[in-house]
Design a protein around this nucleic acid. Structure first.
Lengths: 207, 207
DNA sequence: TTGAAAGCATACTGACTGGTATGTACCATA
DNA sequence: TATGGTACATACCAGTCAGTATGCTTTCAA
């Protein structure tokens, strides 16, 4: 019996390790905020250790930044921005994204809100690195929304008096506000009520 | 020289002490959130000590609750709800409150956002005591806004197709969203842009 | 095969934090 | 004036936390 053949060799996959840490950190930040996030809780969720975490990320803050850059922003783009870019009727695209939102992850978003907005409200005044990353995200979102409105204008479906910059900002604000109101009420019904208001507003933009 | 006459007797005013702690705690919570609030920072701002603080408040959480009940909610009522209740033209009242907001405390609100919304986004998922207090505040605000819309209806100034419940919710959401967008951008100009969108929306409610 | 680097695990560390225990001073009442 | 309660100050405490130091294992390239 050759004992060397009975020793379990643990295979390493650093990319996967890193991704698991990022995912666990995202969930912890989503639930508790950045300040409330505990690295030990992140590790508990991954079954990894401090050594692994600090090998991949030099500090808690660096981990937080990576969650923004590599989890939150790409998710936002896939969920919110891509469907809008692909919409043949931009106003209908806006409405669809908003209507489908409560179905995408209703329990989680009602309970915890929007990850982008949460982090923005928590960390913008406290840390410039977070604020800049989140500001970038809001700008991208704003630009995609404004361009959608401008496409609607080219298609002749947008009222002439609509200011695309202002309206894009307003739509974003209303949407984040709706999610925030529902989160506080812990009520998907509040989200529906509010979203109906926003959808009415968007439909009112049609010429 | 009678030395007893030269000893400084410190006069105590417990109500004032309590109020100073509350005010300092409010500012600390406003800047850092509840989780980020440090009692030592609160005390540093008051020049008081742990003994005083724990005499008046049994725990950090109790202090946080008292800030909501005794600082945030009364301020909201004075700043937002009272002017609305007193407005002869309710829609104009809504517009005025929104227009005057950036002038009331522009540097602070741009930097730190809305205290009610901040706390709501941070603590609602984490603590039921906070969530209920903040939920109460949102309900009061909602009711006052809905009643204003209903008064406008009685005055014949509101479009017939407007759902007062839905619209009140939407206005609140949009307003909190505008403040949040401005806070992230650290830009009073963003707040103006967004508020103009909201004011246009409110004016569009007129029959 | 060897040695160095990468990737991970474990034990340790010091600062920080909310809260506790005790002491001192002020205030109100008899 | 004496006494007890209130209001505050100070010293202490144990647990928590992000980060550090060290060790062990796997991987890769020469």
């Amino acid at each position: 019996m050759d004992s060397a053949q009975n020793v379990t060799r643990i295979e390493r996959n650093p990319d996967q390790t890193r991704a698991r840490i990022l995912e666990a950190a995202f969930l912890e930040m989503y639930r508790n905020g950045f300040q409330g996030m505990r690295l030990d809780e992140v590790l508990k969720a991954t079954d990894l250790t401090k050594g692994a975490l600090y090998h991949h990320f030099p500090s808690k803050k660096a981990l937080g930044y990576a969650v923004v850059d590599e989890v939150i922003i790409p998710t936002m783009e896939a969920m919110w921005l891509q469907p809008l870019k692909n919409a043949t009727d931009p106003l209908a695209g806006l409405v669809t994204v908003i209507e489908q939102m409560p179905d995408n992850k209703p329990p989680e978003m009602i309970e915890y809100g929007c990850p982008l907005n949460n982090l923005s409200q928590e960390m913008s005044p406290l840390d410039e690195g977070f604020r800049q990353r989140l500001d970038y995200a809001f700008r991208v979102w704003h630009d995609v929304t404004q361009e959608a409105l401008e496409r609607a204008r080219l298609q002749g479906t947008l009222r002439d008096d609509v200011d695309c910059d202002e309206t894009a900002t307003f739509i974003m604000a209303a949407l984040e506000g709706c999610i925030g109101i529902a989160k506080n009420a812990q009520s998907v019904e509040r989200l529906h009520v509010c979203n109906r208001g926003l959808i009415r507003f968007i439909e009112s933009l049609r010429s």
